[in-house]
């Protein structure tokens, strides 16, 4: 990435920052429209910079531009829309677009997992809570943002820092992707019982991304899988404990006792 491209990127970020700044909810005269124009301009400028300065035309794909636009504009709307319901629904859009970006990078399994977990479970729960908690009107804290300038400044400086660094990454050429798809890379990692099965069920599936993901996760990172399971269990218990309705109990509760006296006069249970 040339220096000129880098500076062009910084310019684009500045433009985008201005757009997001205007779009953030505020009391008084709305400047959403001008902000939206600026932000869209910034997004398209970003894609233009990428197209001319970064992406190797031989490997570029039109889908990248499409889904990058959807993801970035959607994300912008998530953080700037005054109605949380819309934010959540825009987020669905972002999740689907990001899933598409992952598919473009060959991570099909991860992409579908993203859609199932995020769009199918997490976001619908968010939507559920939003709808339950906020049934009418638009309260003041949704129509006002706090210190939008500092926030935008910090965020976009960070963005610029990362992007400036990203310019030094080696371009992923044929070598990288060839290593990904080569059977040799697969064969090196498939000393697992799953593959030694002489079952016909494995036919036609042996090259797929999901199988290789399974091998990697279940062979190389099996401890992490266990830890993830424990984490989910803990989260489940935590969520149940948090949202449970409190049953009034007899006797003094811990909260009624002055600080420092707990454990001395009140039994811990």
């Amino acid at each position: 990435m040339s220096t000129a491209t880098t500076y062009a990127l910084y310019l684009v970020f500045a433009l985008g920052g201005a757009g997001v700044y205007f779009m953030l909810p505020r009391t008084g005269r709305s400047r959403v429209l001008s902000g939206a124009v600026l932000a869209s301009l910034a997004v398209f400028a970003l894609l233009a910079v990428l197209a001319f300065g970064v992406i190797d035309p031989a490997h570029g794909s039109g889908y990248f531009y499409l889904f990058a636009v959807i993801a970035l504009l959607g994300a912008g709307r998530v953080i700037t829309h005054p109605k949380p319901t819309y934010s959540a629904l825009y987020f669905v859009l972002v999740a689907v677009a990001v899933a598409a970006l992952l598919v473009l990078q060959g991570a099909e399994f991860l992409a579908v997992a993203l859609v199932i977990i995020y769009a199918g479970a997490i976001l619908i729960t968010y939507a559920f809570v939003i709808m339950l908690a906020q049934q009418s009107g638009s309260p003041i804290y949704d129509r006002q943002s706090r210190e939008p300038f500092i926030a935008v400044f910090a965020g976009f400086v960070l963005m610029a820092a990362i992007a400036g660094r990203a310019g030094e990454l080696p371009l992923a050429g044929e070598t990288v992707d060839a290593a990904l798809t080569a059977p040799a890379a697969l064969a090196a990692q498939t000393e697992s019982p799953a593959n030694q099965q002489d079952d016909s069920a494995q036919e036609g599936a042996d090259e797929s991304n999901s199988l290789r993901m399974g091998v990697i996760i279940m062979v190389n990172y099996v401890v992490v899988v266990q830890i993830a399971g424990v984490l989910l269990l803990i989260a489940m218990i935590g969520a149940i404990a948090l949202s449970r309705k409190k049953v009034p109990s007899d006797g003094p509760r811990a909260a009624d006792v002055p600080l420092g006296e707990i454990g001395r006069k009140v039994k811990p249970y």
């Binding site: 669905v92 099909e108 399994f109 579908v112 997992a113 859609v115 199932i116 769009a119 199918g120 479970a121 599936a205 797929s208 991304n209 999901s210």
Partner: peptide
């Protein structure tokens, strides 16, 4: 590759 998961994903939407 992931036809089955694709259908679950779509159904969850």
């Amino acid at each position: 590759d992931i036809g089955l998961l694709y259908i679950i994903g779509v159904a969850s939407m």
